[in-house]
């Protein structure tokens, strides 16, 4: 019941639905950046939605299977191949003992989720198998995969090849990507013009965007309302007295490049946050390639909650479609 890592890809990590409950002591949520893709990959191979999968960014790994397994790849369009023969994404397929799973060039999106029947069996750390590489926690020895690694599989329930998720239940961002956001506590630090510009401008994903935060470039620099820095805040107008950083919060150091904190976020610091991207759109961020255009769209809390509800309804449709029970 093992999978040999022949080539690891760029940064392939073991992820599940994350490790909530420790953010107050600086340990972030972690887990798949695209949670919908993580859940659906698992459902396709008959796993509980919260089983551990592989998250491969921009480039797929090459894996050798030592036992038969059912596999599904969701999220990014990273075309899978079994012994060099193409397979479909968002569709379960068989990989037989001795066969190799590899991937073609990335076509769309950024992160592919590779689920195998039985799930990836690594030790559960603080309630999760997710890898937090910055803290060397969870996953396979707290790090990304390397050539020569051996991944264990859990016990598989019944799984079938050929299960597929219809196109209207696959989620991909448009171009430019539209990320809905709610202005937050520190919104008053911006001038009225700067606040308007932030939502009006088209930004581009910076190449340094990663699991900790997604950085955006290319919009107009933000202007701040003049002030005398409060005790404990730095002298830059974007500084605040240290505060908690919510998941999804948008900080803009020196007013130039917004950073949206993602699943490996740092939990606090001294930059103002103009608001937060709504939870329903966090998955989309994980699928943005460097240099792709994105806009921030202002919404109310009511709209954000409706969007969350819509996302859950979509997941229910997938569960119904696959005849799966709601388990996580």
């Amino acid at each position: 019941m093992a999978i040999n890592v022949i080539a690891p890809g760029l940064s392939t990590t073991v992820q599940d639905l994350g490790r909530p409950g420790y953010y107050n002591i600086g340990i972030p949520l972690s887990g798949g950046m695209d949670r919908y893709a993580t859940r659906t990959a698992n459902l396709l191979v008959g796993n509980p939605e919260g089983a551990a999968v592989l998250e491969a960014v921009f480039m797929g790994p090459e894996l050798e299977f030592t036992e038969d397994a059912v596999v599904a790849v969701t999220g990014a369009e990273l075309p899978p191949k079994v012994d060099g023969r193409p397979r479909e994404t968002w569709t379960s397929f068989m990989v037989h003992k001795g066969q190799r799973l590899s991937f073609d060039y990335l076509k769309k999106g950024a992160r592919a989720y590779i689920a195998v029947s039985g799930g990836i069996d690594v030790p559960v750390v603080l309630g999760s198998r997710s890898t937090y590489t910055l803290g060397a926690l969870g996953g396979l020895e707290g790090r990304k995969l390397a050539a020569g690694d051996v991944l264990k599989r859990g016990m598989a329930a019944s799984a079938w090849e050929g299960r597929t998720i219809p196109a209207n239940l696959r989620r991909m961002s448009g171009s430019p990507a539209e990320l809905r956001a709610i202005p937050g506590l520190y919104w008053h630090r911006l001038t009225e013009a700067a606040g308007k510009n932030f939502f009006a401008d088209t930004w581009k994903v910076a190449p340094e965007a990663d699991r900790i935060g997604y950085r955006f470039k290319g919009g107009r620099p933000l202007e701040f309302v003049p002030r005398t820095p409060p005790f404990g805040a730095g002298s830059d107008p974007s500084n605040i007295v240290d505060a908690c950083y919510p998941y999804g919060s948008i900080q803009v150091p020196s007013g130039t490049e917004p950073i949206v904190l993602h699943r490996d976020a740092v939990s606090g610091g001294g930059y103002f946050m103009l608001g937060a991207v709504i939870s329903a759109d966090m998955d989309l961020i994980g699928q943005l390639q460097p240099h792709t255009p994105a806009r921030f769209v202002e919404v109310t809390m009511e709209q954000a909650l409706q969007a969350r509800h819509d996302r859950q309804a979509m997941l229910h449709k997938v569960r119904d479609w696959l005849g799966a029970k709601a388990v996580s």
Binding site: L10, F58, M59, Y105, L106, A110, P207, Q289, P290
Partner: peptide, 8 residues
């Protein structure tokens, strides 16, 4: 020669 990755 093809780029293996997106980036700069």
């Amino acid at each position: 020669i093809l780029s293996p990755l997106p980036g700069t």
